[in-house]
Amino acid sequence: MAELHIALEVNGEQREADVEPRTLLVSMLREDLELTGTHVGCDTSQCGACTVLVDGHAVKSCTMLAVQAEHTAVTTIEGLGQPGSLHPLQQAFWDKHGLQCGFCTPGMIMAAADLMAHNPEPTDTEIRHAIAGNICRCTGYHNIVAAVREAASVMREGAAAPATNA
């Protein structure tokens, strides 16, 4: 099958790849663009480990074709923060022990990022609904919810009092 040449924005950078039509977005991210922070768990659209943002919306990248992402803006876990300057969600997952094995963490964080974008002050119930499409099999959801709650609080403070010496 002939490959198609596609261009898209990934974590703020213009990227290009040659993909078969059947190439899944997650495969292109991991194998062509070498962004292995996005995980493949169930590969059946249930576990949410592969969650990324496409044009700001959380989607399961195992259930989207790479060609469907052409000319979109994709954000993966690598695009949220960097070692030394973690995103508040990454920092909060660390501080609140929101992970043990870490396999589900990138997907959890990207799903939470979608929630934060339209609900800066989520209740615990809203947080639980927001991550209903993400399965954790070791940490347990309690600390994950606590981490998202903490991150929301930090992000609200950040929005209310922007750093003056930035």
């Binding site: 659209s45 949410g48 969650t51 919306h57 959380a58 259930t63 979608d114 209903a132 499409g133």
Partner: peptide
């Protein structure tokens, strides 16, 4: 609508 799948699936 909230009974259908999950956030990610409802986004697509």
């Amino acid at each position: 609508v909230p009974a259908i799948a999950d956030v990610q699936v409802r986004n697509r």
